[in-house]
């Protein structure tokens, strides 16, 4: 992480295309060493062969065109959320909204989403990594989306007063948990919600995502199980009106920086620390671990960069300062290009977005290195415009790509992180432009 001086990295082309039944199970290179204060659960890709949601009845996985369109939708809703939560970078967070018409939300038979506020959550179409959690006493197990770009955890709940989408797990049934309770409207936690309401003294939550998906229901508390750990009194949304692109998941685990996130709610237990590893392929397993960084989670060889916390809640901002291609820093990008726009780390966005000046320099340097190696260009695909035809090749040599952060921490991308594969004849640089330098 201190930065590689290598200028090339090898990639086996077939590793980009795992078969539908080729789950390679856990591929962790380091032993899992449980610590007294850490809890670790597996992360898998929602549509990959290791996913508990995959299978004959899960429906067709989305096409690359659909994935990239959903990714653009998420980025646009993220940009909208960032601009509405700050008055320019470093500005004050926006005022919280109360849910209009809130008292009738859970009981309403209307399918309209007009009674929940717009864009209190991101578009979720590409938050494609899922983790197992337990909820209630005795605990019921659920597979939920893992999202560092939002705060409030929620699951679909019985009796589904208005509507529920189809999910793989059984619905959470509050009546069967001895530790379940609704949060009262007077509880200060109710005011922590981005959008809240009140019904007969019970606090209501509402989240509408950028793609039109939404969840509305009771804000509740119960015991959350993460691996072997139990977090008592964990506050979450018990969704009674849920619709949208959540696939077969039971809900969402919010890992943002805001007050309703698990990060903040379990602060006393884990000290506000967590880490994860996303696997190189959708056919492998990564992990999500809460608690102080242990050697098993690579804490010992991690390079850190300041978490910039003055730019509003929820998101994890960092200071990107430069990009290296083939071991050489791209001199055409003034550092102000990054500092003017800001940069955040998101588990739910697929393709890294850069200010246009930075993207143009990166794609140009990458293309020059690929041309020097004689690789054949391919047509652009959706938001990806720097693509290659690897037909007939079993291994390719890519220029290294590194992201350099404030303080010198460096992300020397794994080969699997440099490109995004549509097909063997269309493998593209896995970055896209924000369109300009100010967006």
């Amino acid at each position: 992480a201190a930065g590689s001086s290598a200028d090339r990295v090898l990639l086996r082309v077939d590793s980009l295309f795992p078969g539908p039944s080729s789950c390679t199970s856990t591929q962790e290179r380091k032993p899992i060493t449980a610590t007294s204060s850490a809890a670790r659960v597996p992360i898998v890709h929602r549509h990959g062969p290791c996913s508990p949601l995959a299978g004959a009845h899960a429906g067709k996985p989305p096409s690359h065109a659909e994935i990239l369109a959903a990714d653009q939708n998420r980025v646009e809703s993220l940009h909208h959320r960032v601009s509405s939560t700050t008055t320019g970078l470093g500005g004050k967070p926006r005022t919280k909204k109360k849910t209009p018409g809130h008292s009738s939300v859970p009981a309403s038979s209307s399918s309209s989403s007009s009674s929940v506020p717009a864009s209190s959550g991101l578009s979720l179409g590409t938050a494609n990594y899922v983790v197992p959690i337990g909820l209630g006493t005795p605990p019921s197990r659920f597979t939920v989306v893992f999202d560092t770009g939002s705060d409030t955890t929620w699951v679909q709940c019985r009796p589904c007063v208005v509507s529920c989408y189809k999910q793989k797990d059984r619905l959470f049934d509050p009546a069967k948990s001895s530790t379940y309770a609704n949060v009262s409207c007077a509880d200060p936690a109710c005011a922590d919600l981005d959008a809240s309401g009140c019904n007969a003294g019970h606090c209501l939550y509402g989240i509408q995502y950028g793609d039109g998906s939404y969840t509305v229901g009771f804000f509740a508390k119960d015991t959350l199980a993460v691996a072997q750990d139990a977090i008592k009194g964990f506050k979450f949304g018990c969704g009674e009106k849920n619709r949208g692109l959540f696939g077969q998941t039971a809900g969402l685990l919010g890992l943002g920086r805001g007050p309703t996130s698990i990060t903040v709610q379990a602060y006393e237990k884990y000290g506000g620390s967590f880490s994860y590893c996303l696997p190189a392929s959708s056919a492998a397993t990564g992990y999500l671990e809460f608690g102080p960084l242990s050697p098993s989670s690579s804490g010992s060889n991690a390079k850190t960069t300041p978490m910039l916390t003055d730019k509003g809640p929820t998101f994890y901002y960092v200071g990107l300062t430069g990009i290296r291609v083939g071991g050489k820093q791209l001199g055409a990008i003034p550092e102000s290009v990054f500092s003017n726009s800001g940069t955040l780390v998101d588990s739910g966005t697929v393709i890294t977005r850069l200010p246009d000046t930075a993207y143009a320099a990166l794609s140009s340097a990458f293309a020059a290195a690929m041309a020097a190696s004689g690789y054949k260009k391919a047509a652009a695909y959706s938001i990806l415009d720097t693509c290659y035809d690897f037909t007939g090749l079993s291994q390719v040599s890519l220029p290294t790509v590194s992201l350099v952060f404030q303080g010198g921490a460096c992300l020397d991308l794994d080969a699997s992180g440099i490109v995004y594969a549509i097909s063997q004849s269309q493998v593209c640089l896995g970055f896209a432009s924000n369109g300009d330098d100010e967006s």
Binding site: R29, K30, R257, G272, S298, Y316, T352, F405
Partner: peptide, 30 residues
């Protein structure tokens, strides 16, 4: 705003510590 997406995070241990206000990257974590 720029966004570091999940494709680029693959195989790295991505570490968040709200109390120390740091984000970390560790290669070869999975």
């Amino acid at each position: 705003v720029g966004i570091v997406g999940n494709t680029q995070q693959r195989t790295y241990g991505v570490l968040y510590d709200v109390s120390k206000k740091v984000v970390g990257f560790a290669p070869g974590a999975c």
